[in-house]
Design a protein around this nucleic acid. Sequence first.
DNA 1: AATCCCCACAACCGCCTAAAT
DNA 2: GATTTAGGCGGTTGTGGGGAT
Length: 317
Amino acid sequence: MGRPPCCDKVGIKKGPWTPEEDIILVSYIQEHGPGNWRSVPINTGLMRCSKSCRLRWTNYLRPGIRRGNFTPHEEGIIVHLQSLLGNRWAAIASYLPQRTDNDIKNYWNTHLKKKLKKNQAIGAIFAPPPPSEPSIIPTTTGAGHVDLHHGMIVNPLSKDNSLLRPAASSNTAEVTQLIARHSPFAATDGDSSSSPYASSMDNISRLLNGFMKSSPPQNDAADIKPSATEVNPLLSSFNQYHMAGGTTLPAFNDMLPSPPPQQPALMGHRGYDEPKQQHQQGPLSPIEKWLFEEAAEQVVDLMDLSSDGCCSVPMMF
DNA sequence: AATCCCCACAACCGCCTAAAT
DNA sequence: GATTTAGGCGGTTGTGGGGAT
């Protein structure tokens, strides 16, 4: 009794969103807040299905997301989390609050997977890994990882990830802190994607600037800093909305102490109470902790090496 | 200059889950 | 408890841009 596709109604527009549609959507959400997506096309007159509206918002228009230009640190985090969680992009994205699952997924598929393959090949020639090393990192192309609870290899692509879940989220606070240690966000300015259109805050402010001519020049950076709200009136009003809803647009560091699901306040707006099935909070076992920290250090270090454009050291992936 | 090919990414599709009825 | 449906997520595809020929 599958649910029929929501979008096969006649008259539903598909394909790339236009700035005009974005304006309509943003305006509506600014007024009503995200959620109740079914009513969005009805109330706005957008010829889009609700799903498309939600996707457009969560992946591109939602304030606080960065697009493109993944830093080596982010790459490291993604690679590591992917090895831990498998292709659970939403879960991975929850640890990179400024990134969307779609973006991470795309980046993985187009860049990181290739890197891994390439460097795996190089590694096979130059630097065979010690056999006893726990293979929770770039072991591979993500074809397997160690289930921390059961000490077994789990295929993340398997439909049944149930074994993995507890391990992956056994202590999200610690995981978050660990990642925070390597977090690029506090210090690094991400610049916005080079894409011509469709870039989150850039977009929104651009859209809004159409209405508010007096908008000051803004940083190219799409990253959210507290000051961004001062220069971006829309963002400010978004913040007001978020505040009203019990959330705000915190700097990444502000979010760190609280793990998912509460952690990424932004994530709340995705609607994704990510790891729905997860969050069995509990202390990391010593081995988990060791594995995780060890792995993260290695990945981050390696990513640093690889980002230097230095080829003298064989990389892990 | 024209054509082809490859890559990156935005968007769609279909399945799953949970909430509502 | 069964059914319906909105929302969420991961996989996949379509398309435009840029580089190679």
